[in-house]
Lab assay of single mutants.
Amino acid sequence: NNDALSPAIRRLLAEHNLDASAIKGTGVGGRLTREDVEKHLAKA
């Protein structure tokens, strides 16, 4: 659900052409954090 993404996370996802649903969020309520996105990028 993109409504739960902060603007910074949306921008980071867009810059790397990532789909938020492909990344498991570890923030409050399962929200994506910058660390989640960076860890996903490091794996790729």
Rank of each mutant, 00 (worst) to 15 (best):
V28P: 14
A4L: 13
L41V: 13
D3L: 05
D36G: 01
S6L: 07
A44F: 13
N17K: 09
R11N: 15
K39Q: 12
K24H: 10
N2E: 15
E15T: 06
E38K: 10
G29N: 14
E15W: 05
V37A: 04
R10K: 15
P7A: 12
R31L: 12
A14I: 08
I9D: 09
A42I: 12
L18Y: 03
N1F: 02
K43F: 07
K39D: 10
L13H: 00
L18Q: 04
G30Y: 00
R34I: 15
A20T: 08
L5Q: 07
R34Q: 15
A22D: 14
I9G: 02
A4G: 14
P7C: 07
N1R: 09
A4Y: 15
N1Q: 13
E35K: 10
D3F: 00
R11D: 15
N17H: 11
V28S: 11
R11L: 07
I23W: 00
N17P: 01
V37K: 00
K39W: 06
G25Q: 03
D19L: 11
K43Q: 14
E38V: 13
T33Y: 00
A44E: 13
V37E: 00
V28W: 04
K43M: 12
R11T: 08
R31T: 15
N2L: 12
A4I: 14
E35T: 10
E35G: 10
I23L: 07
A4E: 15
L5K: 03
P7I: 10
D3V: 06
E15Y: 07
A14F: 06
G27A: 05
T33F: 00
A42G: 10
A42Y: 05
V28H: 10
P7F: 01
E15P: 01
A22R: 11
A8N: 10
E38F: 13
D19G: 04
L12Y: 04
A20G: 08
H16T: 04
A20L: 09
L5G: 04
D36M: 02
H16Q: 04
K39M: 11
L32Y: 02
N1M: 09
H16S: 05
H16A: 06
G29W: 01
R10I: 15
K24W: 03
G30V: 02
P7D: 15
N1W: 00
L5P: 06
N2Y: 02
A20P: 14
A4H: 15
T26A: 04
G30P: 02
A20E: 11
L12H: 14
A22V: 14
A42S: 12
S6F: 05
V37D: 00
R31M: 14
L41H: 06
G25W: 00
T26G: 04
R31W: 06
L18M: 09
V37I: 14
A44W: 09
E35Y: 07
L13T: 01
A22E: 14
L18T: 06
S21D: 10
I23V: 09
V37S: 01
L41Y: 04
N17T: 05
E38S: 08
S6H: 10
T26L: 04
V28Y: 04
S6T: 11
I23N: 01
L12D: 11
N1Y: 01
K39F: 07
S6V: 05
D19C: 06
D36L: 01
I23G: 01
I23R: 00
R34D: 13
N1S: 13
G27T: 03
L18F: 04
S21M: 08
H16I: 04
I23M: 06
R11W: 05
T33W: 00
G29R: 07
D36N: 03
D19N: 10
I9V: 12
A8G: 11
R31I: 15
